[in-house]
Design a protein around this nucleic acid. Sequence first.
DNA 1: ACACTTCCCGCACACATGTGCTACTTCTAT
DNA 2: ATAGAAGTAGCACATGTGTGCGGGAAGTGT
Lengths: 226, 226
Amino acid sequence: MRSPPSTYQEGFSVKKLSTRQQGILEFLESFIDEHGYPPTVRDIQHGCSISSTSVVDYNLRHLEREGYINRDPDVSRGIGLTEGSYGRRDNVVSLPLLGYIAAGTPIPVPTAEGWASTEPLDSVDVPTYLTGGRRDVYALKVKGFSMIDALIDEGDVVVLEPIRQAQNNDMVAAVLTDTNEVTLKRFYAEGSRVRLQPANSQMEPIYVDADKVEVHGRVVAVLRIM
Amino acid sequence: MRSPPSTYQEGFSVKKLSTRQQGILEFLESFIDEHGYPPTVRDIQHGCSISSTSVVDYNLRHLEREGYINRDPDVSRGIGLTEGSYGRRDNVVSLPLLGYIAAGTPIPVPTAEGWASTEPLDSVDVPTYLTGGRRDVYALKVKGFSMIDALIDEGDVVVLEPIRQAQNNDMVAAVLTDTNEVTLKRFYAEGSRVRLQPANSQMEPIYVDADKVEVHGRVVAVLRIM
DNA sequence: ACACTTCCCGCACACATGTGCTACTTCTAT
DNA sequence: ATAGAAGTAGCACATGTGTGCGGGAAGTGT
């Protein structure tokens, strides 16, 4: 929200904003938040202790050129934050929390279809940049400590995109059909069998026949509250 | 969204809206959605094919009296939908992304005060349940792979609450003042010295004098995009 | 028919508000 | 130093915009 459009993933190519521009941006945000409509140039002037409307205009032009805001010319209060405020609900998506997943102590898979047809226990709001705009994404809560090897701890929430066919190196929720165990591992297809690789070199990979494994989803994000 | 505020419960007092008022309400909604700011009386006039501004005003008064909208008198575009559109961002908060943190390769701490006075590089929207409503929370991006032992991977974003005094077992961002290294570890006070404990039993803890350590923040959440 | 309410119309006043103009200050690089 | 760029200041003009006023049209009950 504070950065020009696309930069988040890459690191940040943020052109520096002057203190005043930063201040205007913050004022803009809180004003809209408080009033429900954008401020006028003079609102900004007084709110930011600026002595002239033209200075506000000058800096607003700057902010628009840098992509922080949109302006509608000749329209009173015609200022909008680019990613902001109004569209912000679009930056959050509510995911169904379908159940628990663990490695060591297997949890029975509710239905043959996996969690897909399960009633959600709860729901979690996550920012869209975590899901990358994918559809039908769901969340599972990690139970037990046996998946520390995958950098995932008890209580973590994993966000999964439902897939049937994994690519190598994907971290997947896989069901071993003969034992009905479900586990989070990295996936590697090796001929007729599949290697399920922990992330910790201290632990041994699991090898199973390809037809004994069902991939239910691929982990796209992890959330941990400590 | 279409029903008047509190009166609805009681039953009756719902005065029916005229077609025109219904239309104005819908126009209001779509206009705000499209432009990011409320319409003027004249915008409504043209948008709803009304021949006079006073008619719009008349109906707006009506809508306000019935509780469908709020108006700020003498303020251009000072119209707001009561239940609407604006107040639903309470479940997301925008945190400043203040910089990087790593264990192995120490990164110079910008100022003696830590990141507190640093210009944010970017910002990250996170759901409020991750911060637990704490104030002054900030985010750091993890650089380098040397913190896998703490279940934290390269590129993860850690959310920190600024604290000066850590409790045992807290995961903290700690600065070793003599080498100016900053690291994420679990914190244990042991007499006059401090043990900074990795989460991996394969790795040795760091022992330092208590006065050689500055705790800057406590990790309250971790985000990982895979 | 009558009064009465609700709703509509056109207009115009007063102020709100975006923007252009000119001049001045501060910063920055040569 | 010095020139150019970036930022600040004050003002004024044209237009945007909320609101009030007199009056008309349409429904409603008696």
